[in-house]
Nucleic acid binder design. Sequence first.
RNA 1: GGUGGGGUGGCCGAGAGGCGAGGCAACGGCCUGCAAAGCCGUGUACGCGGGUUCGAAUCCCGUCCCCACCUCCA
Length: 507
Amino acid sequence: MAQRFYDTKTAAVRDFVPLTEGEVSLYYCGATVQGMPHVGHVRSAIVFDILIRWLEYTGLQVTSVRNVTDIDDKILEKSAASYGEDFEEDDHYPAEEPWFALAYRFEQEFARAYATLGVRRPTYEPRATGHIPEMFALIHRLVDAGHAYPATDGSGDVYFDVRSWDSYGELTRQRLEDLQDAPDAGPRGKQDPRDFALWKGAKDTDPATALWDSPWGRGRPGWHLECSAMATKYLGNHFDIHGGGLDLRFPHHENELAQSAAAGDGFAEFWLHNGMVTYEGEKMSKSVGNTISPEQMLEQARPKAVRYFLGQAHYRSQLDYRPTSLQEAQAAVERIEAFLDRGADVVAEAQLRREEAAAVAASLSGQSTGEGTEAVYVAQFSSVPTAFRAAMEDDLNVPQALAVLHDAVRAGNTALAAGDTDAVEQHYADVQAMVDVLGLDDVPESEPTQDPAAHHALDTLIRAQLDARAAAREAKDWATADRIRDTLAAAGVVVEDSAGGARWSLQ
RNA sequence: GGUGGGGUGGCCGAGAGGCGAGGCAACGGCCUGCAAAGCCGUGUACGCGGGUUCGAAUCCCGUCCCCACCUCCA
């Protein structure tokens, strides 16, 4: 089986063959940093994070790019508003904030949200404002090729000429004449209302810091142009995958494709689009005002559970958020974790026995020990189950991959109960490998138990309680035993009895 | 009007002609001093009406409803 992806442009699932053997070039649209991130933004990042982790797992070297749009109308508007006389500050919008300060502040908020949920940083994270010369070069090529023209009204705008490019609409299979006229389709120096701006001429209201001198006059870049310029700078004229949210297909990605292809670039081989997060059936968006922020989710559930929730559906499906969604995700995550916790003890013990046996064998034969056992362990256990691989290869079918993961957890639990160490080791390794690919083990969690000193102190204190409880149980003094368990429970410590003695964990 | 995607058991969510993915919740059982965890089992799921087929959630015809994009949007 080979890797397959659904490509929006051809509207089909196709075999994915990298342009350069062993390497993958991926560009996906990041955010316009004009406000706080919501979980829709984060879902997209998690989807592509899982994609990258999977491709790397299969041995490919991935170069990934996620842009930051740090200049656009909304950013300028919000900054301008902060200087207004009747402006009211709030937590997210202080008064008198320059546009670049606002953009950078929200860029950091996005970075924080990504990091909290275990989204690794892309290879490159370019900002639009840092790539003005690259954009000039692209505009020049388009003007020279007859696919772009300066506005006829002296505004300083430069437009892409959609009628000059027969393939316009090929990404989303739409015909020019079927498109609704834009509501603000005023003349504005366009030859056709569907032409889009590559460069926006300076307006009176634009701050000087937001303007650049260009061969077409002072101004600032158009949104679509940024992505084309940055994608090809870091990945070359022809690259493997272009991703982004489904809502970006039109006009954003259609325009990107048109301008890049018209300039003669091969651009993206595959177009991957992730589905929207909905709130009780409706798309989550700023304009509707039904957004949930990562922070709000993190108040309800652990980061790992939030990541699991946002990553659990197929990436092309719409994902519906409901008030109980996070509790459900957390229960699923904790089931996996509980097996890994219990399994780790068994695996460590088995490992120790193997090392001892190897040491004995070595001392008998007079050879040194060391990497031998480790190498055997890695070779034998570090791969993902075939069914998991098949699911991931099939257009990144994470839900089906998760079914494989849960099956392995169940098999592992059964092996634990049966005391079948070999089977526990195998299932433990499988589960660990799958969890790694999904990035679930890469979510930072600030639990006191992760600080070794704090954990040691806590463990010592709780062990004393558990020892006392064990003694009470031995004496069949259930009242005392239960009181100790209740006390620990009230402190947030969950006690589980097992054949090997009591285990504790934080709630 | 155009384009794309959907309607699956209490909820989420895969699948796409033939053994009821998986998770969460519920119920029963095993285990347990009691729990918890875990394991086993239970539910007559595929919007509606027709049709094709030995067999349809999956194919065909009809029909209803929902979502997204066509303006900024992950």
